[in-house]
Amino acid sequence: MNELASFLEYKDQGIWLQIYVDPFNKRIRIDDYYGNLQAIIEYAEKLIKEKKLEKLIFKGRKEHFQAFIQQGYILEAQIDHYFLGSNAYFFTKYFDSQRMENSHWITEDQIIHSINGMALSAETIHPPQEYHLKKVEAEDAENLAQLYQQVFQIYPTPLHDPEYIKKTLVEGTIYYCFYGNGKIVSAASAEVNQTYRNAELTDCATLTEHRKHGFMKILLKKLEQDLYKQGIYCSYSIARSLSFGMNAALHQLGYEYRGRLRNNVFIYDKLENMNVWVKNLAEQPNFRQ
């Protein structure tokens, strides 16, 4: 299913677009662009209508903020410092009225309200000795794919496939995991954008019976340390809005909430809203020690 998603480049007189076409999630995302903005928007909207998809997302720039609003786009979230220090804004437009309907919005508001009242985490977590932390290599791909098969029935990228995981490793994605009894029980990754020096912390998964040990906070901190060493300071994560645990973990690690992407991707068994969290790793004094 997910193999149908593809990255495209379109270049014509006066415009250039980097496009992620995602038929499974019925959306198109414009990751980068330059040139005449009106022509860029017209091309993207023509493409989404031709492919009969439902949601168009632009990672827009600060200087185009008002232009997108004037064109009927909705600002759903932002990522601080995404474009080499300049903010990225998620401007969206819907091409199917049902795609905008959502019955979980108020519940998710209440989750954010509860999390914002929590203190940041200063504790050092020591997992039981039978678990060990490891940076994922190609030899771990089969084991890692099995974890994702167990945790996610549906996922936006084909992490059920070991060959896909190996491909992402070659392309620069960083994974850390915890092994227990010879199998991976928890994992997370950092998807690195070398062009704009940012990274998305993603693919967070822990088997249910192992969730009491605080693995995810340890994994995310290890990923942050790797990113800092590479000079990548814009770290962000996009978490399921209904997941109290994942959103709370990000908040306690110092991430700040920056909005919610409505009906964004299919995860588990339904189309889900996703919360955007950001952190400036350059401001973390413990990384400079």
Rank of each mutant, 00 (worst) to 15 (best):
E200P: 00
N143L: 12
D161W: 01
I184S: 00
E171P: 01
E130S: 07
Q153E: 13
I106C: 04
L223Q: 08
Q146N: 11
I218K: 02
L227D: 03
E224Y: 08
T206K: 05
Q110H: 08
V170M: 03
Y155M: 03
I174A: 02
H210Q: 06
N116D: 12
T206Y: 04
S121A: 10
N198Q: 08
N181A: 11
L220P: 00
I154T: 10
D96E: 10
K135E: 13
Y131F: 11
Y164N: 07
P128W: 08
E191G: 00
V151Q: 03
K221W: 09
H104I: 04
K217V: 06
M118Y: 01
G231E: 06
L147E: 07
V170C: 03
I165E: 04
V136C: 09
E224Q: 11
Y155Q: 03
V170T: 12
H113D: 14
V185Q: 00
Y131Q: 00
L147C: 04
E171D: 10
H213S: 09
E209L: 15
S121H: 12
L227I: 07
T208H: 15
T208E: 14
Q110M: 13
T157V: 08
I184E: 02
M100R: 14
R99N: 07
T107S: 15
L220S: 04
E191W: 10
K212Y: 10
E200K: 03
K217L: 04
G231S: 05
A138G: 14
I218G: 02
T173D: 14
I154K: 07
H126C: 08
T168K: 11
E209H: 14
D226R: 05
L219G: 00
H160T: 15
I106A: 07
E163D: 12
E142D: 14
S189Q: 09
Y131D: 00
L147D: 01
K222G: 01
L223R: 03
Q149T: 11
V151E: 01
E139M: 03
D109A: 06
D140Q: 02
A145N: 10
Q110I: 12
K229E: 13
V170K: 10
K166M: 06
R99G: 06
H160S: 15
E139I: 13
A122W: 08
Y228S: 05
P162D: 08
A145W: 06
P162I: 08
G180T: 02
Y164L: 13
S121Y: 10
L169W: 10
Q150I: 02
Y176N: 02
D96K: 11
F178H: 04
N143H: 13
P127F: 07
M100Y: 12
C204T: 04
E108R: 01
R99Q: 14
A187P: 02
E163S: 05
Q146E: 14
Q98E: 15
Q194V: 08
E142G: 12
V185S: 00
Y148K: 01
S103L: 11
W105D: 13
N102V: 05
P128V: 10
E101L: 15
T124V: 15
Q150N: 12
C177E: 00
T206D: 04
L227E: 06
L147S: 01
G117E: 15
Y131G: 00
H126G: 00
N102G: 09
K217F: 06
W105Y: 10
L144N: 01
N181F: 05
I154E: 13
K166N: 09
A138F: 08
G182P: 06
P158D: 06
T208F: 08
P128C: 09
Y196F: 15
T202C: 07
V136I: 15
